[in-house]
Simulated assay, not measured.
Amino acid sequence: MNDMDIGIKMKMLQEETNFSGVYCANKGGCEFSGSFGFANRSGRIKNETKTKFGIASGCKIFTSIAICQLVEQGLLSFQSKLHECLDLEFPLISGEVNIHQLLTHTSGVPDYFDEEEMDDYEELWKDMPVYAIRTLSDFLPLFQDKDMVEQPGGAFYYNNAGYILLGLIVEKVSGLMFTDYVEKNIFKKAGMEASGYFEMDKLPENTAIGYIEESDGSYRTNVFSVPAKGGADGGAFVTAEDMVTFWYALFQYQLLSKEMTEKLLKPQIEVDEDLFYSYGGYVDMEQNKVKKHILMGYDPGVNFRSVYYPEKSISIVVCSNESDGAFEVLKDLERLLI
């Protein structure tokens, strides 16, 4: 199927779903891309293939790669304990929590946003001003003094605070702000020239504003719904093209050695039947073999999905500046390309 055929199919889907965002896919060296909707509704500025989008938790893999880079340098190990890495006070967190557990969501540490208990991320900012959340340390009051939710090394329990802790470890060991570390050691090395961690009140040009649909069909922006600046658990801005570039760089061992890349992507903990979590996101298995790697992200006004099929070297990226729609576009692209 050629780019025109895919474009026609995607246009039909967009008309059915009113999708706002961008897709980009790479198959056999051929790139397919398209854009729909508005990056800025009030200014009637359209989304383009080079528009930057927030990807929420889709960027947890950057945190994992940063940790793996430091392990490769001998500055950490996956068995390093949290209390050995940080000199912060965590009075109720077990001394047995280690980096492996934080990476695989099996640490049992308290989360600041428990996705099994809460379904509205905006609730977090009723008592704490969202504009004040600009560094990783700003998140600490939300979970630092809470009880453990599980014993370390237990079952998979998706945890955003665990990745905040991993980001703080990156800062402590590297001597750099987490966002500076990722931009220097991952984005720059991978050739992700347009990507970065931007402040919501200082977004650069060609960046999509996130929109939340109201019950009456109107829209409002997400400027008061997500942290002023993202970090280790989510919140980077990328272009869809940059994420295709990222997958290529990762599997060409430009970010980690071959051995460490395999360690990053190895299925570690079972989440559901044939679905596992690695250090680098979800892994869909088929007959005991890796079928695809999966990244996903959701915030109010942000929806992101990406997959990589290692045996076929196919990458697909879908970014949306609304709260949903990316999954449906991704599934259609998979049906067309795989």
Rank of each mutant, 00 (worst) to 15 (best):
F38P: 04
N47L: 12
T49V: 15
K50G: 09
T51N: 11
K52V: 06
K52R: 15
K52E: 06
I55L: 14
I55W: 11
S57F: 10
K60Q: 08
T63W: 07
S64T: 00
A66P: 03
E72L: 09
E72K: 12
E72P: 06
S77Q: 11
F78H: 03
F78T: 04
S80M: 01
S80P: 03
S80V: 03
L82A: 01
C85V: 02
C85R: 01
D87C: 11
I93V: 15
I93N: 01
E96P: 02
E96Q: 13
N98D: 13
I99F: 00
L102G: 00
L102V: 00
T104C: 03
H105G: 03
H105Q: 05
P110N: 12
Y112P: 08
Y112M: 04
F113A: 09
E115F: 09
E117N: 13
E117P: 06
D119E: 15
E123Q: 13
W125E: 15
K126R: 15
K126V: 10
D127P: 07
P129R: 05
P129F: 07
V130M: 13
Y131N: 15
I133H: 08
R134A: 06
T135K: 13
L140G: 06
P141T: 11
F143I: 06
Q144G: 06
Q144A: 12
Q144N: 07
D145I: 04
V149I: 14
E150F: 02
Y158K: 07
N159W: 01
N160H: 07
N160W: 02
A161G: 05
Y163N: 03
I164C: 10
L166E: 02
L166F: 03
L168Q: 01
I169D: 02
I169V: 08
